[in-house]
Design a protein around this nucleic acid. Structure first.
Length: 742
DNA sequence: CCGATGAAACACTGG
DNA sequence: GTTTCATCGG
């Protein structure tokens, strides 16, 4: 075993750096996981560190698992004891150990977005505020933002009336969380930070114990995370952080790539190491990517070098489809062709998009072609109703104070407990200064003797029955194994009969339940609490199935940290990528650019850039223009495969007059060679008649200046700024434009 | 109290 | 186009 053998000089410098602050700026594909893994091995083997003295923070649970297994291979000895996981998982672990300092018990549950929204609605209602004005999602964003920036309710800046109100909602929301014995995602970080901030003894204990702290994807840390690291490292400053400003894509979650700059300021002696040797892509892919990212500012420029054996590689391929159906069809057919001609295996392809909504058409195209695919994210498994129901039952078992879960399943399956009964239950709980769950348990235990039996009136019996179920389950909490407990709950409530109505969806729902049960079996050893925590903290990226011989469909965000031989980036239109919401904010725009950069640099060999001249939004069709990022790719790195010009849109309306674009494209399409849609076909050579700078005249809009012109879909699209009506986009063949002078 | 129906809102990225 | 919420009749 030689930790240093397969490292290049920069990697070796990083791995063998003396204990102290180290900043590794690692370009895509430069082997940063290897650096992190070997660094840990080096700490243990050469610097005499014990595994339990090492904390390694990863971006996903999957990355943690991967690092663990690589490390086990690298070291002969067991790596048990290393703290490895996401910020959230590590914080949850600390919080469960330190309940003495916290306003909740160690059986706290973690609320997800839906739970948060429900709770915020409740807070808004409690404060008699207008629910239309204070929408849960927007309030949640404000609160989350505050938490990410270490702002507690009392410190929330009340600069506007709205902020003042949000501060009150925030405060109420925190109170509600605590009475539910619950925390949200941001709380995991915030409470841990607060714990270390306010209790120097606790801070020192952790900091002295965790002698070496390593952080992956450092560019995507936010302020709480940064401050948390400072506290944890306060006794020694042994912080080894690895990141790349160019791959920071979680700004909306509070991530700030400028933490990389702050790190250099806060730790002046920090070693800075740049990893520029790329082990993944061809030089062409790297050059194209660099041309895109070099337009961003406030970063360390990097010159990524490909391995000589990877060679120059193929040009990036650009395809402009007539509409989004054509876009999907192109993706599917290109994959089929490549597989058929043995150029690549199906599993070597990834199809990336900006928004999950875009996956639908792609999935349909794959289904129609009979081509299997694997989908990452989107309708999350854990977001499905039946899965959430069962999780709610289990959460309630662990923590009867969880009113959100109770509200979710108290009447599942329907057992006659409607709104009215639930409201009186709330009132009874309030009167008794306790939670609804406790009232249920009391009803079950004492029956008619219970204090609230009278108040509840007719529904008391029904509520007591639910309480009885809950009490019975809780008695078994320590005796039954997790899978048995799972079955017991399902049996007692008759859940299968409730969701599996014999229909196709019904058995699909039951299938999901069984999937969840399989997971419960895996957690038999660790128990309910660990099971629930894992359910809350797993991410989409953790659930990417490996080694399946099928193309992967995923968002650009989910693609971070992955690599594929062939990558499609779809939706390369202004408004999609860059996304509409980024168009008027330079910081957001820079992030969209990084997102595109991340997409390109996932590719080992081939990149397909795809756009659609028209796409459906909300049901109606809209024209789009090519993404501005496409202009930044040097022409000699790009191969334009032109417009194929047909759509697989099924509606019969494709021949209506206003659809002349698809028609026009269609008329240029090559005669179908052997049935089916025509194979890839270059656009016909059509001279551009208009050039930027020309003065033109239009019969109704008068004179104007040509801003831009390009050939697409077999026609010429001309952008003209008219003196009378301003900016207009015209089709060369239709518009009656006269050229006045060039 | 329950399920069906129709209107209205609606989707950027995710631990 | 899809999903979620409110309303209505049973």
């Amino acid at each position: 075993m030689d930790i240093l053998k397969e490292l290049n000089p920069q990697q070796r410098q990083a791995v063998t750096a003396p204990a102290g602050p180290v900043l590794v700026l690692a370009g895509p594909g430069s082997g940063k996981t290897r650096v992190l893994t070997n660094r840990i091995a080096y700490l243990i083997n050469q610097l005499g560190a014990q595994p339990y003295q090492i904390l390694a923070v990863t971006f996903t649970n999957k990355a943690a698992r991967e690092m663990e297994s690589r490390l086990a291979k690298l070291l002969d000895r067991s790596v048990q004891g290393i703290w490895m996981g996401t910020f959230h998982a590590i914080c949850a672990r600390i919080l469960r150990r330190e309940q003495a300092y916290l306003p909740f018990t160690s059986s706290f549950v973690i609320f997800d977005d839906d739970d948060q929204n429900t709770l915020i609605k409740r807070a808004v209602k409690d404060l008699n505020l207008d629910e239309k004005l204070y929408k849960p999602t927007s309030v949640r964003a404000a609160i989350s933002n505050a938490k990410n920036n270490l702002i507690l309710p009392k410190d929330y800046p009340a600069s506007t009336y709205r902020d003042e109100v949000i501060a009150r909602i925030y405060e109420r929301y925190q109170t509600l969380l605590i009475s539910n014995n619950a925390v949200d995602f941001d709380d995991l970080l915030l409470y841990t930070w607060k714990l270390l901030e306010e209790n120097p003894t606790v801070r020192d204990t952790y900091s002295r114990r965790l002698q070496h702290i390593l952080v992956d994807e450092f560019q995507d840390t936010n302020m709480v995370q940064y401050e948390l690291l400072r506290h944890l490292a306060s006794a020694h400053n042994h912080l080894f952080v690895v990141g790349d400003e160019d791959q920071s894509i979680y700004r909306w979650r509070g991530a700030d790539y400028r933490n990389v700059l702050r790190f250099e300021e806060d730790y002046p002696g920090a070693q800075k190491i740049l990893l520029e040797q790329n082990y993944r892509s061809t030089q062409t892919v790297l050059d194209a990517a660099r041309a895109v990212i070099d337009r961003n500012r406030y970063r360390t420029p990097k010159r990524l070098k490909a391995l000589p054996e990877h060679g120059q590689g193929e040009k990036l391929e650009l395809y402009e489809a007539v509409d989004d159906y054509g876009e999907a069809a192109y993706v599917v057919e290109t994959i089929q062709q490549s597989v058929r001609y043995g150029k690549a295996r199906a599993g070597e392809f990834a199809v990336m998009y900006r928004t999950n909504a875009m996956s639908r058409l792609l999935e349909e195209a794959f289904l129609r072609a009979g081509l299997p695919y694997r989908l990452v994210g989107a309708q999350r498994f854990y977001g499905r109703r039946e899965v959430k129901d069962i999780i709610s039952f289990l959460r309630l078992l662990q923590n009867p104070n969880d009113e959100i879960s109770l509200g979710r399943v108290i009447n599942v399956p329907p057992r006659g407990i409607g709104d009215k009964a639930q409201v009186s239950l709330q009132l009874a709980a309030q009167a008794a200064q306790t939670s609804a769950g406790q009232v249920l348990l009391e009803l079950a235990a004492k029956g008619k003797e219970a204090a609230s039996w009278e108040i509840l009136g007719r529904s008391a019996r029904l509520l007591a029955d639910v309480g009885g179920l809950l009490a019975a389950w809780r008695e078994q909490l320590d005796t039954l194994s997790l899978p048995n407990l799972f079955d017991r709950v399902l049996n007692d409530v008759g859940y299968r009969e409730y969701i599996d109505d014999g229909s196709e969806e019904g058995s699909g729902r039951w299938e999901n339940v069984q999937e969840l049960r399989r997971l419960a079996v895996e957690y038999e050893e660790r128990g309910l609490s660990a099971f629930l925590e894992n359910l809350a903290l797993v991410s989409d990226q953790d659930t990417i199935p490996e080694e399946a011989e099928a193309p992967t469909l995923l968002t650009l965000h989910a693609a971070k940290g992955l690599e594929f031989p062939c990558v499609f980036i779809t939706g390369l239109d202004d408004g999609m990528l860059p996304h509409n919401r980024a168009l008027d904010d330079p910081e957001e725009m820079a992030e969209e650019r990084r997102l595109f950069y991340v997409g390109i640099t996932r590719a080992k060999k081939r990149v397909y850039l795809v756009r659609a001249a028209q796409r459906s939004t909300y049901g109606s069709f809209q024209d789009s223009i090519p993404s501005r990022f496409l202009d930044d790719i040097p022409a000699d790195k790009l191969q334009n495969s032109g417009a194929r010009g047909y759509s697989t849109r099924r509606s019969g309306s494709s021949t209506t007059w206003n659809d002349n674009r698809s028609l026009r494209g269609g008329s240029y399409a090559a005669p179908a060679s052997a049935g089916g849609p025509p194979a890839r076909q270059a656009a016909p050579v059509l001279p551009a008649r208009y050039k930027p700078g020309m003065r033109v005249s239009h019969p109704s809009w008068g004179e104007g200046l040509v801003i831009d012109s390009r050939l697409q879909d077999g026609d010429e699209t001309v952008d003209v700024a008219f003196e009378s009506v301003g900016f207009k986009r015209l089709l060369g063949s239709l518009a009656k434009l006269d050229i006045l002078k060039s």
